[in-house]
Amino acid sequence: MDIIVEQFAQARLITAEDREVPVSATLRYLVGDPLAVFVDFPAEAALHGEEVTWTFARSLLDQGLRAPAGEGDVQIWPYGRTRTVLEFHSPHGMAVLQFPASALRRFLVRTYEVVPCGHEDLAGVVERGLSTLFGGV
């Protein structure tokens, strides 16, 4: 069975009008996908009224808590001492969210307690990826 680390987090969506709208999110980590973290947003927080999940590297979250990180669809950086910004880009637009840095750090620590950095099963990740790519189960 896959060990899952889940943690609820309250974020603030920064709108184009520079307003802050409260948004709930669930942070997830799966031992079966040890290099990634997932951020789930409920339907009411999404543009199209459907739940949305963003997946990105656990190392990106770790780096972004300390300094600006990311060059692609997900960018993360500290905002003052108590907040961290996660910026998500998609073909449908961009979302900028501020999370309490303490909540993200707590989640990250919990993931490292389950799978320490450098102890990820990379062979298993590659095997599952190739199986998915070539139509295996």
Rank of each mutant, 00 (worst) to 15 (best):
M1F: 05
I4R: 09
Q7E: 04
Q7M: 00
Q10T: 13
L13E: 04
I14K: 11
I14L: 12
I14C: 01
I14Y: 00
D18T: 15
R19K: 15
R19V: 13
S24T: 08
A25I: 05
L27F: 03
R28Q: 14
Y29N: 07
Y29L: 06
V31E: 15
G32T: 07
D33G: 01
L35W: 10
V37H: 01
F38L: 11
F38W: 08
F38G: 06
D40L: 13
E44W: 09
E44C: 07
A45F: 09
L47I: 13
L47H: 09
G49T: 05
E51C: 13
E51N: 14
T53N: 05
T53H: 03
W54H: 03
F56V: 10
A57R: 07
A57F: 03
R58T: 07
R58W: 02
L61Y: 00
D62E: 12
Q63Y: 13
G64C: 08
L65N: 04
L65C: 02
A67R: 09
A69V: 00
G70H: 00
G70Y: 02
G72M: 04
Q75A: 07
Y79A: 13
R81K: 15
T82H: 04
V85D: 05
V85S: 02
L86Y: 01
E87N: 14
F88P: 06
H89F: 13
P91Q: 01
P91Y: 01
H92L: 11
G93P: 12
V96H: 00
F99D: 02
P100M: 02
A101D: 04
S102A: 12
A103L: 07
A103N: 06
R106Y: 11
R106S: 15
R106M: 13
L108P: 01
V109M: 13
R110A: 15
R110M: 07
T111F: 03
T111S: 00
E113K: 08
V114Q: 12
V114I: 12
V115C: 07
P116W: 08
H119A: 15
L122E: 14
L122Q: 11
A123V: 13
A123L: 14
G129R: 02
L130S: 04
T132E: 08
T132S: 09
T132D: 07
L133W: 13
L133Q: 11
F134I: 00
G135Q: 03
G136V: 04
